Simulated scan of single mutants.
Amino acid sequence: MSDKKILIIEKASELFAKNGFDATSVQEITDACGISKGSFYLSFKSKESLQFSIFEYFSTKLIERIGSIYQMEIGPRERFEQFFVIQFEEIARYSDFILMQMREQTNPINDEMLGLMNDMRRKTYEAQESLLLNLYGEDIKEHMTDLVVILGGIVKGYIEIIVFNEDSLDYVGLAYYIVERIDSIVKGLSKPFLTTELLVKNGMCGADRSITAEELLKEIKRVKQRVADEDLLISLEVIEQEISKNNYRKPVLSGMMSNLKNSELTEQFVRKLKQFLDQSA
């Protein structure tokens, strides 16, 4: 995304939050950005398309920041805490805009917006699943659906406080508190109650969604930016070259995948690659 588009998005979100969506004109947005109307319409077809881009910008930034925690030289517990801190910080930053949207209910959610929201939920779920498994081990896998729903309820309550109250919370302390509560929940787990299919129906995970070669290639590029280990980079490059072929060789991909399994940085990618191989079996 260009610097000009980001400038328009940032200024527009501030104006929408302050004055409301309908009450804010394109002229006011261009004045705040110091650009002409023509320059605005070269970037966005309309005020409504700008509104969608604000949501897209917010969701992309959130997912990118969540992805950045794998670059931090911290333990799995601290990494999970950062997962919550980042969500709270980003929601707080756009809380006035979010509150405006809730009050005005501008533009009903269309298929494009719904797809964007579901994609963000799915990616957040995937990151959360990876962090939970990393912290508590594979034994909690059968309880993952219940944990996601329980966590969603807990986090939603705090998000409402962040959005509806002007006073800032201690996000680091809150994240620490939430992970402590999860400790207690995990210790008390017995028999799973919910099934993964329920999350799939609500768009929260993609267990029934096919993984495409294009998606894997994009994921490889993101992972390579976080990885410094030369052996891991070589394995990723071999996988990248192999997937780019029309007739990739599964034994080669499986062999390279085994080289990545012991790295936290590639854990989520390995899951997607495994699903990709399984669905083509």
Rank of each mutant, 00 (worst) to 15 (best):
Met1Gln: 06
Ser2Glu: 07
Ser2Thr: 14
Ile8Thr: 00
Ile9Trp: 00
Lys11Asp: 01
Lys11Asn: 04
Lys11Leu: 00
Glu14Arg: 11
Glu14Leu: 05
Phe16Ser: 07
Ala17Cys: 13
Gly20Ser: 11
Ala23Trp: 06
Ala23His: 11
Thr24Arg: 05
Ser25Tyr: 00
Glu28Pro: 05
Glu28Val: 09
Ile29Lys: 01
Ile29His: 03
Asp31Arg: 07
Gly34Thr: 00
Ile35Phe: 01
Ser36Arg: 02
Ser36His: 00
Lys37Met: 03
Phe40Leu: 06
Leu42Met: 15
Leu42Trp: 09
Phe44Thr: 02
Phe52Thr: 04
Ser53Phe: 05
Phe55Cys: 01
Tyr57Ser: 08
Phe58Asp: 02
Thr60Trp: 00
Ser68Gln: 13
Tyr70Val: 15
Gln71Arg: 15
Gln71Ile: 03
Gln71Met: 14
Met72Pro: 00
Ile74Cys: 10
Gly75Trp: 03
Gly75Ser: 11
Gly75Val: 09
Arg79Phe: 04
Phe80Asp: 01
Phe80Thr: 12
Gln82Asp: 13
Phe83Ile: 07
Gln87Arg: 05
Ile91Asn: 05
Arg93Thr: 08
Tyr94Trp: 08
Tyr94Ala: 12
Ser95Cys: 08
Met100Phe: 05
Gln101Lys: 14
Asn110Pro: 04
Asn110Leu: 05
Asp111Ala: 10
Asp111Ser: 14
Glu112Pro: 02
Met113Glu: 08
Asn118Phe: 09
Asp119Arg: 14
Met120Trp: 07
Met120Pro: 06
Arg121Asn: 10
Thr124Asp: 07
Thr124His: 06
Ala127Pro: 01
Gln128Tyr: 14
Gln128Ile: 14
Leu133Met: 15
Asn134Met: 12
Leu135Gly: 05
Tyr136Gln: 09
Ile140Lys: 05
Lys141Asp: 09
Lys141Glu: 14
Thr145Ser: 15
Val149Asn: 05
Leu151Lys: 13
Val155Asp: 02
Lys156Ala: 13
Ile159Tyr: 03
Ile161Tyr: 03
Ile162Leu: 08
Ile162Trp: 00
Phe164Arg: 14
Asn165Asp: 14
Glu166Ile: 12
Glu166Asp: 14
Asp170Trp: 06
Val172His: 12
Gly173Asn: 03
Ala175Arg: 02
Tyr176Gly: 07
Leu189Gly: 11
Ser190Ala: 08
Ser190Phe: 06
Pro192Val: 02
Pro192Cys: 03
Pro192Gly: 09
Pro192Arg: 07
Leu194Pro: 05
Thr195Asp: 14
Leu199Asn: 10
Lys201Pro: 02
Asn202Val: 10
Met204His: 09
Asp208Ala: 08
Ser210Pro: 06
Ser210Leu: 12
Leu216Lys: 10
Glu219Asn: 10
Glu219His: 12
Glu219Pro: 04
Ile220Ala: 02
Lys221His: 13
Lys224Trp: 03
Arg226Lys: 15
Glu230Gly: 04
Asp231Leu: 15
Leu232Asn: 07
Leu233Met: 13
Ser235Ala: 15
Leu236Asp: 01
Leu236Thr: 03
Glu240Met: 01
Glu240Asn: 04
Ile243Arg: 00
Asn246Thr: 11
Asn247Arg: 13
Arg249Met: 11
Lys250Phe: 01
Val252Tyr: 03
Gly255Trp: 00
Ser258His: 09
Leu260Asp: 05
Leu265Lys: 14
Val270Gln: 04
Arg271Pro: 02
Lys274Tyr: 09
Lys274Glu: 14
Gln275His: 09
Gln275Val: 14
Gln279Pro: 05
